[in-house]
């Protein structure tokens, strides 16, 4: 695979932004600054970025309850996201959605989603639109190992094959759905890709904690989908570094498991070690990005804290009728 310096720097910046955004949220939530349910994406950065670095704004993605990483990877405004999560009127969704419902349809981010399994059928619809537009664009549904057990996901996969649209099912297998293990809840063991295959799709598998692995595999998948217009699926083996939600004691984990995955499966560390990174980039350049991202996140939190709050009198805006 031919990498460019610009491409790698951009991908690293996106992954570092996700990591620091989430780590900062982890701290602020512990302080009680942030209302609602928040699911952090740390550990899965390579998955979102490895997929979305291939997309432009006309390609669509549909996300999940663990959506911050997908949003950042697709190019959502980080400060607008932070404001949204703080419940500000200036947030990307005017403070009405919060962490679980960030969307920016203008850049092809069709929404994070609080209903597990709701996204895959919507990606099929977005793929119908892509096919109608005839410009080789695609629609991607991100789903977890838990979401892959919803009937909606099965229906979507079957229908995508039947009506032959460029929908891509990206399964991020982080091995847990809330407190349940994938080896229990996914009847095919922890193999999700074979399910997609059974619906008649071409499937790929990659290490979703390794940017280069995900990016290179997605390149093949996207070549195929953009050329044929057929749906496809990919299973990304990855990890989540924090609890299911903030405050989760994670008693389901093995002893030492978190230390091990943080040590062995950290997408940022792995990125730095990859041969193409070492060949094209200096460590110092990546350190500089880390610093710039830290400044951006500081600014985002500061602005979110000071941003306009929602005014109760605006509660029935964007509703076509009030009673």
């Amino acid at each position: 695979m031919d990498y460019t310096r610009e491409g790698l720097l951009r991908a690293y910046r996106r992954m570092a932004t996700i990591r620091q955004f989430e780590e900062r949220l982890h701290e602020e939530i512990a302080k009680g600054e942030i209302p609602g349910f928040t699911h952090l994406y740390c550990g899965q950065e390579a998955a979102a970025v490895g997929v979305c670095e291939h997309l432009d704004e006309a390609d669509k993605i549909v996300s999940t309850h663990r959506g911050h990483g997908h949003c950042i990877a697709k190019g959502c405004d980080v400060i607008g996201m932070m404001k949204e999560i703080y419940g500000s009127r200036e947030g990307l969704c005017k403070g009405r959605g919060g962490s679980m419902h960030i969307a920016d349809t203008s850049i092809g981010m069709l929404g994070a989603n609080g209903i597990v399994g709701a996204g895959a059928p919507q990606a099929v619809g977005a793929a119908i639109a892509a096919k109608a537009a005839g410009e080789g664009k695609v629609a991607i549904a991100f789903s977890g190992d838990g979401a892959c057990n919803q009937g909606t996901t099965f229906e979507a996969m079957n229908m995508a094959v039947v009506i032959d649209v460029p929908a891509i099912f990206v399964f991020e297998n982080n091995h847990y759905s809330e407190h349940t293990g994938d080896s229990y809840a996914v009847a095919t063991g922890n193999d999700i890709a074979s399910r997609a295959e059974a619906f008649g799709m071409k499937v790929w598998r990659a290490n979703g904690s390794d940017f280069h692995a995900t990016y290179e595999t997605m390149a093949k998948l996207l070549d195929y989908v953009r050329q044929t217009g057929h749906p496809a699926a990919i299973e990304l083996d990855t990890e989540r570094f924090y609890g299911h939600f903030e405050g989760d004691p994670q008693r389901y984990r093995a002893k030492g498991e978190l230390d091990r995955i943080r040590d062995e499966r950290d997408a940022l560390k792995t990125f730095r070690k990859a041969p193409s990174t070492r060949e094209l980039l200096e460590e110092g350049e990546l350190d500089a990005i880390d610093k710039q991202v830290a400044e951006l996140i500081d600014r985002a939190v500061e602005e979110a804290r000071g941003a306009a709050r929602c005014d109760p009198s605006q509660i029935d805006e964007d509703v076509y009728a009030a009673y």
């Binding site: 809330e178 407190h179 349940t180 080896s183 008693r251 389901y252 002893k255």
Partner: peptide
């Protein structure tokens, strides 16, 4: 229901939650 015991298929085991 989902996680009514909690922890199925994990090292923490049934009743983790």
């Amino acid at each position: 229901g989902e996680d009514v015991a909690g922890g199925a298929g994990t090292a923490g085991g049934q009743e983790a939650i």
